[in-house]
Design a protein around this nucleic acid. Sequence first.
DNA 1: CACAGAGGTTCAATCAGCGAACCGCTAGCC
DNA 2: GGCTAGCGGTTCGCTGATTGAACCTCTGTG
Lengths: 170, 170
Amino acid sequence: MLGKDYELQDCSLARSLETVGERWTLLIVRDAFYGARRFNDFQAHLDIPKAVLSDRLTGLVQDGILERRQDPEHAGRHLYELTAAGRDLWPVLYALLAWGTRHRRPGSRVFRHAECGSQLDDAGACPRCQITPSPEQIVTVPRRGRASLREDPVAIALRGPHRLLEPIDT
Amino acid sequence: MLGKDYELQDCSLARSLETVGERWTLLIVRDAFYGARRFNDFQAHLDIPKAVLSDRLTGLVQDGILERRQDPEHAGRHLYELTAAGRDLWPVLYALLAWGTRHRRPGSRVFRHAECGSQLDDAGACPRCQITPSPEQIVTVPRRGRASLREDPVAIALRGPHRLLEPIDT
DNA sequence: CACAGAGGTTCAATCAGCGAACCGCTAGCC
DNA sequence: GGCTAGCGGTTCGCTGATTGAACCTCTGTG
């Protein structure tokens, strides 16, 4: 759905959906949490038409979810990184992830509290430490025997344990 | 975004988005939590084209989010009600609602634990009782002075406090 | 029986998503 | 310096979804 406005709905849910409700948008944000930062990494991992990816990245930057910077190592390249508001979308992402796991099919990855290694519960909290870790404190690991068949840089980086928000090196 | 499949993404987030990621879908689910059950109530409150509403309701029923029943009081009419899987979407809805409130604009309503009256925190928990109430235990009340200008049955029912999932009578 | 309202379906026009092709820039190689 | 490859896009024509208006059927009411 497009950032099409739900103008008449005086509701913060409608406001949220205007910025993250379009097709592909939340998957792009997910990949940003996984550490994707470059145009081609998003594109290769998502199999999304470049024109759509370009449009969504522009929108996410305008809406303050991503920040676009120069890549210090490569002139003329850019990096897209989550802003504070973008990182604050983690509970939304996790709630959807957990719902899909319960009612659809478990995904190929699991999320653990980096500090103690416990698997997060349905609410995203660490059952052992009794806290709800921020994304920086979470590590995602593939379920045993479920490594992805994909060959793009993001999929390869996620074959082993990976801390959220840690940039994948390409 | 359509229930268009994100087939290649082996991820429960993608699975979730296939069922609730289309335009309008989460707003329909929100209205179902507010107690809307009839076609016309959804249509009047959302300003959604009837063809799209019909399509989305059919999809939500097929995906096990809503259940379609005969209206016992009116032959030939139907009621759409949330299934257990649909009610389990509450954390997703609340996470989006809370994000929109923090980063966009506060909506016109507020959510309280019915039992004690405390306003829920950003995670949807009751700060006084230290529990996370299920939707049945939550009451939504308009923010002072922010009653909706709409005149449809759902908007009217929500002018006062209203317990989630309690059917609005039309 | 006429009429109104609920709950849809159908239709033409518009708009967004898609894949392929193209383009400018930088870096590396000869 | 010239050639080529890869990155980060944009453009374009096609397809498929969304939209609002019109229409249709069924039920209950006067």
